[in-house]
Design a binder for these strands. Structure first.
Length: 801
RNA sequence: GCGGAUAUGGCGGAAUUGGCAGACGCGCUAGAUUUAGGUUCUAGUGUUAAUUCGUGCAGGUUCAAGUCCUGUUAUCCGCACCA
């Protein structure tokens, strides 16, 4: 009987849909498991095989958890605000709402066609009024609590199109649309004070189970550094220039200072600077580069010396020049640095180019050739001379600075506050009103959601305004405080907003009075296991942890951390080994695979193709192996003999397979779990028969991977209870241990022969057995055995001379 | 430049974490079945004349290294020159 995957898969998908098989239960007394995958952005291209791989991992784990008796919440939704939708709306003149709805339908059908066991009653759509009402609500709570502020920033601006552009749309300093030169323009924008949570975000990592490299990336992103703030007196004025350094120990080696071109001290003393024109020109040249580009142009340091401002090194009392250069950023530290050319590569390059003194203060390198950044004995450093330990040197210097009253210990974070706005239509409107009398006023909570108004033209407004700015009905309003005429904020929130709390909404998605009820949150939170892409472990995860921690501080969520565990899957590359992309033309559409091979084969293949956590290229040929395997599983039905027991010659293998599959699934080692099932089926084929009980175990183990076929076999075997409600199989540890073991005999580490021994044979017996082997005798002839090593159950190694 | 990773047969990848390198799958070879092709089944398949050599490259530690250490090269991903 040939397997008709198409009709069988449709049959079971219909049953799951109609019987709501995978709904999370509201019974809060059962043990729960909350498995979360990153919800997709419903793009017009439809799903990507990468989505299938990303979801298949936790899919297998969630199906297994249900079989283990857990009440499982495995939700899905759509992160639907974003530029691509808006751009196609502009291009085709269709409302983004319509495009989004169409795409969501498309994605839903595709996800269902793969048979994912999502709880479809809890779908969340970030662009839904009932959802973004609460996104705005949380934003207002942050506003109330002083975490929202306005400040200036530099944005990529196209003077020809008169719009603000993203970094992506302004690569190479050219506008993506009209190809004219981008300039950096100052604009006042919204910020969320995420830096206030920097330390909490860092500390919180101690209590969660994330992969070590994920933790490391988050730590590096937060980037806590301890150092010192030091004040350098300006000779010409009664003021000082504050810098931040992580290496206060090198203060004696400071021979110049560098400040960011935008540093306010220049504006404050324009009259006293003789070469102000040159500085202005340099500054405007820098304005053409984005911050990222500034980081790229490391090859050649540029800068201009400020004529008219001289700093004084607080410890040596020497006068030192001040330069402006774009390798110093206004956005980190104080926008000014003390330069120690002998011990900092960037400062070294700069000093070489401008002919500035280089003073060695740490022994160990050759500063005539390059900067020495290692440790060593302090020299040329007054009181610090002779200290060899960096920590001690820093401590001593901090003492000196304190005594001189010109410096103190300081902590800096790389992390910047979160620029929380976009000048675009398709996003959550920021619920703030600008009143000429009262300033910034929150939209009252009872007026939420502040709905996105209907517009005809979604194009960005000119002069960097949002399209909403063109709608008078929306903009003009009354101030909720004083009742006077006021104007609404017209910026919308960035795409990251909606995804910063979606996991909370899943707990109670239809609640109209709260973002989620306390009971639901207390039962379901935290997320037990979150899996997603490596590209989201910094931004999305840090942003959402920040929102969650904020809500925790308000007592609105029960746990300090949202995600108890986080893993990440590797990319699926194209068959050419390159990243899949439209432009390379190597994209695989999961639909095609479902149509040609079936959903079970697709699911199996994405998990079998390689280590789940590593990137692997798509190989059309290899899919056939998975197809063949499932065909062999189907054909097992022709070999069934009666009996619910495991037969003697398969017993041990079955127990071992149960153990391996069970453990491998927990460790995301799906490829080896599947390989173990393949090995077992090879054994069954060699034997040409399988008992009913053995087959039942086999399809139970395979069910999370290939649910359609296994449910069908289960039904054909006459079982009333579907596998989805069947208990996961257990194994007997004693059955996994063999009575006899094969050990290896080595001479000087090279394998010479093998021997089969009983599992509890004493050491002496094993060694003498090995020594009596012909090959060993031959190899040891005329030589003396210097050492005998026996690793129980593994090998014997004889060292001979 | 900084940060994170990766490198094993013709290919995708295994290797219980220092103990038989190449599980499992693809591909390939031969045989069986089939009118033929496909499918399916069976056997073989790193390399070598070898008891040889073999996990990007060069060293080192060890009785024993894909695995640990030092250096190095290449590729991929992320980035905010992080002082």
């Amino acid at each position: 009987m040939k397997y008709d995957f198409s009709s069988v898969e449709k049959k079971w998908q219909k049953i799951w849909d109609e019987q709501k098989t995978f709904r999370a239960e509201d019974d809060h007394t059962k043990p729960k498991f909350y498995g979360l995958v990153e919800f997709p952005y419903p793009s017009g291209h439809g799903m990507h095989v990468g989505h299938i791989k990303a979801y298949s991992g936790l899919e297998v784990i969630c199906r297994k958890r249900r079989m283990q008796g857990y009440n499982v919440l495995f939700p899905i939704g759509f992160d639907a605000y974003g530029l691509p939708t808006e751009n196609s709306a502009i291009k085709f003149g269709v409302h983004p709402r319509q495009i989004t709805d169409e795409n969501i339908v498309k994605f839903t059908n595709q996800l269902k066609s793969v048979g994912f066991s999502f709880d479809w009653s809890r779908v969340v759509d970030t662009t839904d009024e009932d959802y973004y009402k609460w996104t705005q609500w949380i934003f207002l709570k942050m506003f109330e609590n002083g975490l929202v502020f306005r400040d200036k920033t530099m944005v990529n601006y196209c003077p020809s199109c008169k719009v603000v552009l993203s970094n992506e749309d302004s690569q190479g300093g050219k506008c993506d649309i009209c190809h004219s030169d981008i300039i950096q323009k100052t604009k006042e924008v919204w910020y969320l004070r995420i830096t206030e949570y920097a330390d909490k975000l860092l500390q919180g990592l101690k209590e969660v189970d994330y992969l070590p490299n994920i933790k490391l990336q988050q730590e590096n992103w937060i980037g806590k550094s301890t150092g010192a703030f030091v004040d350098f007196r300006i000779k010409e004025y009664d003021e000082s220039l504050k810098i931040y350094t992580t290496r206060p120990d090198t203060l004696y080696g400071v021979t110049f200072m560098v400040i960011a071109p935008e540093h306010p001290i220049i504006q404050n003393h324009r009259d006293g600077i003789s070469n102000i024109d040159a500085l202005d020109e340099y500054k405007s040249e820098c304005a053409k580069k984005s911050e990222f580009e500034r980081t790229q142009l490391v090859k050649d340091k540029t800068g201009v010396k400020i004529e008219g401002l001289t700093a004084i090194n607080p410890v040596t009392g020497k006068e030192i020049p001040i330069y402006i250069s774009d390798y110093v950023m206004m956005g980190y530290g104080t926008g000014a640095i003390m330069a120690v050319p002998a011990h900092d590569t960037r400062d070294y390059e700069f000093a070489k180019k401008f002919g500035i003194d280089i003073i060695e203060v740490i022994k160990g390198g050759d500063i005539s050739k390059e900067a020495y950044t290692g440790d060593g004995e302090m020299i040329n450093s007054g009181e610090l001379n002779g200290i060899t330990n960096k920590k001690d040197a820093i401590a001593k210097m901090l003492n000196i600075l304190e005594r001189l009253g010109c410096g103190e210990k300081g902590v800096q974070y790389k992390m910047k506050d979160w620029a929380f706005n976009r000048q675009r239509y398709w996003g959550e409107p920021i619920p703030i009103i600008h009143c000429p009398n009262c300033g910034m006023v929150a939209v009252p909570y009872d007026q939420l959601p502040l709905k996105l108004p209907e517009v005809k033209d979604f194009k960005p407004g000119t002069d960097g305004e949002s399209p909403l700015a063109k709608i008078d009905d929306f903009v003009n309003c009354k101030c909720p405080k004083c009742g006077g005429n006021a104007k609404r904020e017209t910026d919308t929130m960035p795409q990251w907003a909606g995804s910063s709390w979606y996991f909370l909404r899943y707990c109670d998605p239809h609640n109209n009075s709260e973002f989620a009820s306390k009971e639901a949150l207390e039962y379901w939170m935290p997320v037990d296991w979150y899996n997603g892409g490596m590209e989201h472990v910094t931004r999305h995860m840090i942003y959402s942890r920040f929102w969650h921690k904020f809500l925790y501080d308000l007592g609105l969520v029960p746990t300090a951390e949202p995600y108890a565990k986080r893993t990440a899957q590797g990319l699926i590359l194209g068959s050419d080994g390159e990243k899949m992309s439209k432009s390379r033309g190597n994209v695989v559409d999961p639909n095609d695979v479902v149509l040609e091979y079936g959903a079970d084969v697709l699911r199996l293949y994405v998990l079998f193709m390689g280590d789940y956590e590593k990137a692997a290229p798509w190989q059309e040929q290899s899919i056939k192996g998975c197809k063949k395997f499932l065909d062999r599983v189907w054909a097992l039905q022709d070999m069934v003999v009666d009996g619910n027991e495991y037969s003697d010659d398969l017993k041990s293998s079955i127990h071992k397979t149960i153990k391996k599959v069970s453990n491998d699934i927990e460790n995301l080692k799906f490829n080896t779990a599947i390989a173990a099932l393949m090995t077992l089926i090879n054994e069954i084929y060699a034997k040409k028969s399988i008992t009913k009980g053995e087959l039942k175990t086999f399809i139970t183990l395979l069910n999370p991977f290939a649910p359609h076929m296994t449910e069908e076999i289960n039904e054909l075997m006459g079982y009333d209870v579907p596998l989805s409600s069947t208990e996961w199989v257990s194994y007997d540890e004693a059955m996994c241990v063999d009575d006899t073991i094969e050990i290896v005999a080595q001479i000087n580490g090279k394998v010479k022969c093998k021997a089969v021994i009983s599992k509890d044979a004493p050491n002496d017996e094993v060694i003498s057995l090995v020594k009596s082997d012909e090959k060993i005798i031959e190899a040891t002839q005329g030589k003396s055995i210097v050492k005998e090593i026996y690793v129980p159950g593994k090998l014997v190694n004889l060292v001979v001379k």
